[in-house]
Amino acid sequence: MTSDTRAVHKNLKWWDILLLTLMIMGYPVIRSVSGFLLRFCRLGDDSYLHDLFGDNRVAVVSTSCLFGLALLYLYLRRYDFSGVKLFLAPEVLFVSIFLFLAAALMTDVYLLVCHTAGGFFHLSALLGRFEGLLAAKPLPAFEMLSFIYAIVCGFTEEIFYLGFCLSVSENKMIPAFIYTQLIRFFSHTDQGVCFALGIALIWGTVFYCFYRFYPKASKRNLLPFCIAHVISSMLGHGILSYLTVL
């Protein structure tokens, strides 16, 4: 009986990342692009989208299973998981809230600019819907299923974006980052081009820069980014509309 002597490796190949994209982000991208084409490009009736993609129970199960399949693939590829760290630390909660607030405030300012530009150039139908952008609104009611779905999405997506996709050699880091931006964009186009760009340019860039350049490589922790993603999934990607309630 012979043992498997293949060495584990930290860097993934481009086809590894492509396969992981199909497994982890294929469902969100298809849902988002379908919604964009039907809703904003007027290619058909979008009323069935909620029935097709709106069941959080199906989404939780399918996302979890596909992420498990991705982990199995990486295990068989002898990927070194030690580079993808999630651990509790005293600063985790503070950093999570800081990341959310910083990105949310920038998103609010960005969407206000998009709203103004969209109205001026008559592009609101394409850029997205901004009615009541800063209108006061209460915190959303807590729903356990939505919370579970937010946790699943927050952890699987940030592990994909910041963990797996950035598992490349240093000279390929910028192309990998640009690729994650494209996937972030296409997974949010159902909410409008402007909003999707904001998610990529603001949230993607803030997360990437903070993850890559703030802590030492040995202390990089994905947990704050996953938690910040969960918060945004529950509350939305802006914060000013909640502050106007006060």
Rank of each mutant, 00 (worst) to 15 (best):
L246Q: 09
L123N: 07
S218A: 15
G26Q: 09
K10Q: 13
V152G: 14
A200R: 01
Y161I: 04
H229E: 14
K10H: 08
G192Y: 00
F81R: 03
Y214P: 04
I231P: 03
H122S: 14
C226S: 10
A228C: 07
F87C: 10
L222R: 05
M1T: 13
L52G: 11
F36H: 05
V109E: 09
A150D: 15
A135F: 11
R220G: 12
L126Y: 15
A141E: 10
A136W: 13
I231M: 08
V8M: 09
Y149G: 01
H9T: 12
I17S: 00
L166D: 00
W203Q: 11
V33Q: 04
H115I: 01
R31A: 15
A141M: 08
K10T: 12
T244K: 08
M234C: 11
T21Q: 12
P140D: 04
L166P: 01
L145N: 07
L76C: 05
L20W: 05
H50T: 13
L71A: 15
S187K: 06
S169G: 12
K13G: 00
F120E: 14
G44F: 07
Q191N: 05
L162S: 05
L197T: 13
W14A: 00
L145Y: 09
I183C: 09
G83C: 02
F207Q: 11
C114N: 07
V206N: 08
C194W: 08
P140C: 05
Y110Q: 05
Q191P: 00
Q191V: 00
H50L: 04
L126T: 15
S241T: 10
A103E: 15
M234W: 13
S167Y: 01
P140M: 04
F120Q: 13
S62Y: 13
L127Q: 06
I151C: 14
T5F: 12
V152L: 02
T107Y: 04
L166G: 06
V152S: 13
A70M: 02
L69K: 02
A7T: 12
K219Y: 02
F207E: 13
F121I: 02
V109R: 05
P224G: 03
H237C: 06
L43P: 10
R6M: 03
D55N: 12
E157W: 01
C165N: 10
S62T: 15
L235A: 05
D46G: 09
L182Y: 09
F164C: 06
V245P: 02
L66Y: 09
N171A: 12
S169R: 15
R184A: 04
V152H: 07
S146K: 10
F98S: 03
F164N: 02
F94P: 02
Y48M: 09
G128R: 03
C153F: 04
C153E: 14
A125N: 14
G163P: 07
A125E: 15
Y179T: 01
C153K: 00
G163E: 00
L166C: 05
E143A: 06
S233A: 13
